[in-house]
Design a protein around this nucleic acid. Structure first.
Lengths: 241, 241
DNA sequence: CTGCAGGGGTTGTCTATACCACAATAGACT
DNA sequence: AGTCTATTGTGGTATAGACAACCCCTGCAG
């Protein structure tokens, strides 16, 4: 387990050992790991060396300490990673749901005032409008409407949408999202949302309006989503420095 | 310079000392700082203690090490504000409103299950509960409830709250927010919210639950805010890679 | 002149120990 | 039943010393 004669530092071996235990479930989130003195006894290693390993794991977010109580396993990094620039599909997978999708409408329309403004186009420029009901474990989760400038995203078909729109955009068109601005608001579900999300009149929805930009600042996507408030919470982590 | 009898840990004193030297230009980027043994001699402190201070500064990005050569000052890290993580007061000023506040209640209560979990405390640990109606141009904008561990944030008074809670926390207690997790959901206003926010029954509210952490990961603040959906939208920008 | 061995300086790893501050518990005392 | 106290266990801070790995420069040998 721990090889004192290895050229690999002991503290590093211990880190890998503990990380492996976390990954394969021997240690579960919020479970206390053995105390520093126990580890020291167990492997016949100085406590300071144990602390060096644990301190690194704490800094990496795998563990957290509580004075007088012990050292505990943190939630998986995926769960606490900042989230927002992912697609609905990725988002749902991370939350443990099986994502699904039902196409409501797909057409090219002239951009109205709001869409033109969001995508920095002149009015009446052709844009794709893709309206989909997003499912999680086959239950409606959100009504999502995507707007894409037709001159930027060419040759879109229903097949592509049903497969992976993002994959098409990133791989085939080699457009990469660099930055996105989101606006989040609370509202009461409108008539169409009530019907498609299968919720009752007066139910609250979480509206997320996202504008995605390329590296040069060009907006290339505007997405308007109405999430069922009873099933969806937006989670976000921010850091300073 | 370094006070061995101070209750403040020596390594922390040394961190502050070095940070100050970097900030005021006594130490310049890519300049080597004194070696660990020199510091140890200079302050009559064990080398391991010096290392603890330097390791923290390396993790924080102030310094970098090169084996066999020395420890060097890093380039200034851009002081960037937490996006979407400003205080209500700053937020409202940016939006062009005059912020205000009305204290609803202020007491020390034993932490319930949810609060204990959010602040990683054991249940029934004393916490401050501060409930305020937040005003923008003298109109209710949000009902905000703040929970702070009483053992961490000591000596809180109504005066402090009415002036600047954050200033008190950052300057007087020298606690700095390093990271925060927000959870955003939509809901229908509850009875108390209806009354205090002066909105009608069935009105939607945007709930923002924020947990703020110190650099070591200790949660030190949990804030539950209910914003009037007709007046407030949460805006946020994200970047990739 | 070039090349290489060595010495002295630096960070990296590790030990063994000590005491402190905090948390939880068990037990004795109201 | 409630309350205080002592004990035990935990992580937090700090010490003094040792050797390893690495970098750089200097002086010596070729």
């Amino acid at each position: 387990m721990i090889d004192k004669n290895s050229p690999i530092p002991i503290y590093h071996q211990l880190e890998e050992y503990i990380k492996a235990q976390i990954d394969n479930g021997d240690l579960e989130p919020d479970e206390a790991i053995p105390s520093e003195r126990v580890y020291a006894d167990m492997f016949q290693i100085s406590r300071m060396t144990i602390r060096q390993a644990l301190t690194n794991l704490v800094n990496d977010g795998y563990l957290y300490r509580q004075k007088g109580k012990g050292t505990f396993v943190n939630k998986k990094k995926v769960e606490q990673r900042l989230q927002g620039l992912t697609s609905f599909t990725e988002d749902m997978k991370e939350r443990g749901f099986t994502p699904g999708s039902r196409l409501v409408s797909f057409e090219i329309i002239p951009s109205g005032r709001e869409i033109a403004e969001r995508l920095k186009l002149s009015e009446n420029t052709p844009v794709y409008e893709i309206k989909r009901v997003r499912l999680a474990d086959n239950v409606p989760m959100a009504l999502e409407t995507t707007y894409l400038p037709a001159n930027l995203v060419k040759g879109l078909t229903e097949e592509i949408i049903n497969q992976s729109l993002y994959q098409y955009i990133e791989e085939k068109l080699s457009l990469t999202i660099h930055e996105a601005t989101q606006q989040i608001e609370a509202s009461i579900a409108k008539e169409q949302e009530l019907r498609l999300l299968e919720i009752e009149k007066g139910s609250p929805v979480l509206l997320i309006l996202r504008t995605s930009h390329l590296k040069d600042g060009t907006p290339f996507e505007f997405v308007k989503s109405a999430y069922r408030a009873d099933r969806y919470k937006f989670v976000h982590t921010m850091q300073r420095g």
